[in-house]
Nucleic acid binder design. Structure first.
Lengths: 164, 164
DNA sequence: ACTATAATCGAGAATCGTTCTCGATTCGTT
DNA sequence: AACGAATCGAGAACGATTCTCGATTATAGT
């Protein structure tokens, strides 16, 4: 299933690695080998992942990076605006924030699938509400929970079997 | 600050305790003394709280309920539809779901304040989007993060001081 | 009331994701 | 090559939550 046209990666001037290096330099920190491995691996494919999956993924690819460094680097990449956190379960999931249009999520309560969607009205409503309350809106999270099409199909299949 | 009129508690036929007992009975479980203490204490005031605050609160009121029982009961009350979970920080916060109109939240990233608001458009958008993707929408969470009016005021005060 | 049986309780151990500590290593610069 | 600062990895520590298990309590049947 290809993503909808409005959720294609955006054209960006700098690569994630360049952007990360820049962020680190400003703070007097360094883009080391493990950090370069991480940022490139993460932006090599567009998907949601958590710290454990990342460690396992890297290990499979033959790149050892310690858990400590993975957690530390993820935090940095969030601060750098490269990644965004999603707290849907007890584990924190991450997704690309740099070079990717802003969007929200649907979360299947049965299989855990995460589906992205784009809707500009939400942003508008958010700003109207914030203004009403004198808030300065910085960000928002909109997550629709329910059952994805696959799990709904599986359910109705089960119901039919039960009737026999 | 009184809550907006559209966020007043709703009139409900059954008390939370009755509703809890009913839920438990269906599952062949019992409304015990600790559970009765908890459900009544929780619905005695309308506010957000987490497990630790609840334990401390009860202790102050002279009612000892063990941490285990508090966690177990909170889970049950969520399943019973009495409470709703909010995962804004590392601690899970809870709020009334029974006898209270559905609403969403603004969360101040500076002081942690949680402000409720009601907006019917969100629900409508949610259902339209879910339908587009073949999802069955069961629930949603919409959280606006930013700075609350008080923290904005404190900020501009600080900026003025800096200028002197 | 009394007893039997299953559910529940409390205390503390265990779990699990994440963060911290610290001696060893690497980076960039002289 | 040598230095100081930043970073690394391994494992300890942490904090919220869940689990374990012997003691306690609720409810139905006598």
């Amino acid at each position: 299933m290809t993503p909808p046209a409005d959720l294609e990666p955006l054209q960006v001037k700098e690569s994630p690695e360049e952007k990360f290096r820049e962020f680190l330099e400003i703070r007097g920190e360094k883009l080391t080998e493990p950090r370069r491995v991480l940022v490139n691996h993460i932006f090599n494919s567009h998907k949601h992942f958590d710290a454990d999956e990342l460690v396992a993924d890297l290990r499979e690819a033959g790149r050892r990076v310690s858990r400590s460094t993975v957690y530390r680097s993820l935090r940095l990449m969030v601060e750098a605006g490269l990644l965004r956190e999603l707290r849907l379960t007890n584990r924190t999931a991450y997704e690309h924030n740099y070079g990717y249009p802003s969007h929200d999520h649907m979360h299947c309560s049965e299989c855990g699938a995460i589906v992205e969607f784009r809707n500009d009205e939400i942003r508008r409503i958010r700003d109207v509400i914030a203004q009403q309350f004198g808030f300065r809106a910085e960000n928002h999270k909109f997550v629709i929970t329910g059952q994805c099409p696959d799990c709904l199909k599986a359910r109705s299949r089960r119901r039919k079997l039960d009737q026999i």
